[in-house]
């Protein structure tokens, strides 16, 4: 508790004990409400069959550990494939998005460059209205991208907000650096990759994370554009087998590798799918967290 209240400015009175207790309790309760479901889910996915059966459902108290559910999932069935699809779409999508966004953000960041105003206007205008679900669906369909992984990437590849955040960051960098490099004959490409990007690691990481999380979590795109179950990303599998509770027990679903061996209880497998959807996000975002405020706020203010 004392760590909560160090470095109090001299003029501030010390809060009363009940006030401190109330504050700590509130904060602790908020943390518990967020962390508790994750704890239960992770614990259940790691519990041996006996523990799940004796709990009659989700497991609250650890009773041994078993990786059977994960072994089943990654035995080569639907979930394995969905994880690969999601990883692939996320990796390629983030790359496409970052490249397009960084290039355009830099291209529009030089004051007075040719046509930068109408081009920027065309970017900003996308904030004001969405094209509409049905016309976009028809376009994707006309382009022959139904059941293609590109349908999960290209329609959402450029996010105007991310672009504006990056552009604002680039415009805040000292202009003289680029100018002097230009005098020395450097191309814009060289200036961007050798000078500007190394100074923009934080904002690039944040924007990259936003894109990556977007692709990893994408659900609606896949509902619209992917009819072929074999191409489903993880979020659709999560919905089908966990949220809607479709049974995963048949060998065609889990994969042939586990046929004949004892498989984990259905609930543990379901929770393992949840964990697989959860873990990448949970582990990547703290690495970038320290840049959030800077990236988000600078972008918001400077746009």
């Amino acid at each position: 508790m004392s760590t909560l209240f160090k470095d109090r400015p001299v003029w501030a009175e010390r809060p009363s004990l009940p006030a401190r207790a109330a504050k700590s309790t509130t904060l602790a309760a908020i943390a518990v409400v967020i962390v508790f479901p994750l704890y239960v889910v992770i614990l259940t996915s790691l519990s041996p069959a006996a523990a799940v059966n004796s709990a009659g459902g989700l497991v609250l108290v650890p009773q041994g550990i078993s990786f059977q559910a994960y072994a089943d999932l990654f035995g080569g069935g639907v979930v394995t494939r969905a994880v690969l699809v999601s990883l692939g779409v996320t990796a390629v999508g983030t790359l496409v998005s970052l490249v397009a966004t960084v290039l355009a953000a830099y291209g529009l960041s030089q004051p007075g460059s040719l046509w930068h105003r109408p081009l920027l206007f065309a970017v900003l205008l996308t904030f004001l209205f969405a094209p509409g679900m049905i016309p976009l669906y028809l376009l994707v369909s006309d382009l022959g991208m139904i059941d293609s992984y590109w349908s999960l990437i290209l329609p959402t590849a450029v996010n105007a907000f991310n672009l504006v955040v990056m552009r604002a960051f680039f415009m805040n960098l000292p202009q003289e650096i680029g100018d002097s490099a230009r005098v020395d004959g450097a191309s814009e490409w060289t200036i961007l990759t050798r000078l500007v990007l190394p100074m923009s690691k934080g904002v690039t990481a944040v924007v990259g994370l936003f894109y990556a999380v977007g692709y990893w979590n994408a659900f609606f795109n896949a509902i619209l554009y992917i009819n072929d179950n074999a191409k489903w990303p993880l979020q659709l599998v999560l919905r089908q087998y966990v949220q809607q509770g479709q049974q995963l027990s048949s060998s065609s679903v889990i994969g042939n590798a586990v046929q004949g061996t004892a498989s984990a209880p259905n609930l543990a497998i379901q929770m393992a799918i949840v964990v697989v959807a959860l873990v990448p996000v949970t582990f990547v975002y703290p690495l970038v967290q320290k840049h959030f405020t800077k990236g988000v706020i600078i972008g918001a203010v400077k746009g």
Binding site: A100, L103, G107, L139, L154, A157, V158
Partner: peptide, 17 residues
């Protein structure tokens, strides 16, 4: 060069927005 750099993003917005 700057115009060329904006092309991919502007193109994507033109097609998909």
């Amino acid at each position: 060069q700057l115009l060329l750099m904006t092309l991919p993003a502007i193109g994507l917005l033109a097609v998909f927005h």
